[in-house]
Every structure is written in C-alpha cells, then in structure tokens.
Design a binder for these strands. Structure first.
Lengths: 165, 165
DNA sequence: TGTGAAAAAAACACGTG
DNA sequence: CACGTGTTTTTTTCACA
C-alpha cells in the first residue's frame, strides 16, 4: 500500500526525525543517520524509500554558496499587473519561469500581485537586465524592490514540529 | 593549491555545468552526471571534491514537499523595529533563528527592517503562534504580512550564466 | 586524463523475535 | 509483521599508467 498524502499516512516519530535529518544533511550515510535517529542502517534505507515513494521528498539538491559564485545581490521585488481578470497572469507566470535569477515567485493577496525573490551578480545586472526584462513582460504595471542588506537566515528546512505529537 | 574564492578560482565550463547539475539533482551518480557533462566518473569525483573544498557547495539537502507534510500556509512578513541604532537588531536576529517556521530572514533597506519567509500548517498557527511569538520579541514595532496564494516558482538553483562565457 | 582495483555504501534476501 | 544481520550489488575513491 502506498502512502499518498498527509491524510493517509502515518508518520511515526522515526519518520519525522528521519525527514528532519535528510533536510539538514542528505549526504550523511544511512549508518550515520541511523545513529542520530536510533535506527539500523537497513531501517533507514527502508523508511527513506517509503518516504520518497510517498511523495514527502521532492528531491535532493546541492545548495551552492552565492558569494563564492560572484552572486552578491539579493532582492525582493513586488510586481503589480495592469489589469486583473484577463490572462496577463498566465503570460507573466510562464515568462518568470524562464528567468534564472528569479529563484522564487509567489502570487499574493494585497497591494502587489507577485513577490519575487531574485539573486544576481550586482546591482547593475539587477536593474539593467533582470528588472528590465520583467518590466517588459506583457501586463506588468509596476515593480518595487527591496535590496537585501544582510542575510540573517536562509534555510530550506521545513518545520516538522506540528507532526510530532 | 586551494581554490578559495571567486577571484582566485578559475571555474571552467565543466565546473559550471557540474555545479548546475548538482543543484538540480544531487543524487545522480557520478556516472550519470558525467554523461550529462561529458566527463568520466573519476573526473566528476575529482572536480566535485575540489568544488566542495573550494567552498562553492554549502551542503546537500533533501527538499521536502510542504503539502504532503500538512504545511499549507506560506507568508511573507515585514517587520519594523521600534528604534534603530541600539541592539534591538541583535536580539531580534538571534530570536528569529530559533523559530523553525521562519525559513528565511533578510534585513532590507526601505520601509521595513526585515523580510521574513514563513511556512506553517495553517492560518491559525501563523497568527496565533508564529506571528505572536515574533511580536513579543524585544524591539519589534509592527508586522505586516502577505499571505501567499499560489507558488509560481520555488527554486534553490542559483543562476550561473554570468560565469560561463 | 582515463583505466582498473579497492573501499565504502546502499539495496536486498534471509532468518528471528 | 516488523526488525536486524549478513550478503550482493552499486557507487565512489584511490593508485597507477
């Protein structure tokens, strides 16, 4: 039987610590993870497979160091479309998908329509290339941006505390 | 000789495609990556080690599926501190670090002082637990939040195009 | 830089509680 | 039926040409 989603599934406390360990460091060996979680290597192997098959793990990735790669600028940008109701949204969303400097894009309720998380080399690239390109997308009204001064925290670890008890 | 940072380092086009491959899928075997990048498995092994030692790779992680884990709410919150110049910032920053629902926190130039990326189970948890806890941190003036309606794009892949040519 | 050997780790099958 | 142990297979790392 397959674990399909949150409702069907019973994640016991081992699974939860396992997921926590995986999103902290996916390159630890099953042995090492097992020691942290108090499980044998074979158990870890079995459970990890189940968790993957169950759709809890999206994928495994390497997180790179922006500074080391010459990516010195991070910004949050807020895009407002000119008109709502049409398909400006669709055009915008597909275009955004093809801009590698845009790491994240969310539609939101509020003054602006979209929030964009952008990383790029420097301010010149940000304004002259990335923001310019976004401005030119059909339906885009205004863009406002916040330049990030300092990174206090940047994590990909989802909170799992609500599952536990 | 060690590769220390962007200036010293000469990343050739192989290294760049290698980094791109790693941040796309870090669980591919060296063999598979080698086929994509046109390199032998041993070369991939060597280069990956160099890239890690050179500080280009922060770490390897599993990206989990929020929906499958009952994490249905995503929000961007904007925090303004009451006074600037003191050490309210320091207190705030250490406190924020201990809230697992806050995935990202950046200090920014502009109207607000900090931007927070929050993920949690539902709106009740967001307002009654997470935002409440943030409000109570010493020095916090106001919080404004944007609830995310839709995720257009959510990536951890840094843009590497500027390195290439 | 590639090839092959050695080491390590993961996946699997089995026997046991 | 779930668990750990031992075995097989895969994968990575290292030495050598």
């Amino acid at each position: 039987m397959n674990i399909k989603n949150f409702e069907d599934s019973l994640l016991d406390s081992y699974d939860i610590s396992l997921l926590a360990a995986l999103q902290r460091d996916a390159y630890a060996t099953h042995q090492q993870i097992g020691e942290q979680v108090h499980l044998s290597a074979s158990q870890v192997s079995r459970r990890v497979q189940r968790l993957q098959a169950g759709g809890f793990v999206r994928r495994y990735v390497a997180l790179l160091e922006p500074q080391a790669l010459g990516l010195g600028v991070r910004a949050m940008s807020y895009v407002t479309l000119t008109r709502h109701g049409g398909d400006e949204g669709a055009a915008f969303e597909t275009e955004i998908g093809s801009i590698p400097e845009v790491l994240e894009c969310y539609s939101v309720a509020g003054e602006s329509d979209y929030i964009l998380h952008i990383v790029c080399a420097d301010l010149a690239v940000l304004s002259e290339q990335v923001l310019r390109r976004i401005t030119r997308i059909q339906g885009v009204g205004s863009i406002r941006s916040n330049i990030v001064l300092n990174c206090i925290k940047s994590s990909t670890e989802l909170p799992l505390g609500h599952l536990g008890r």
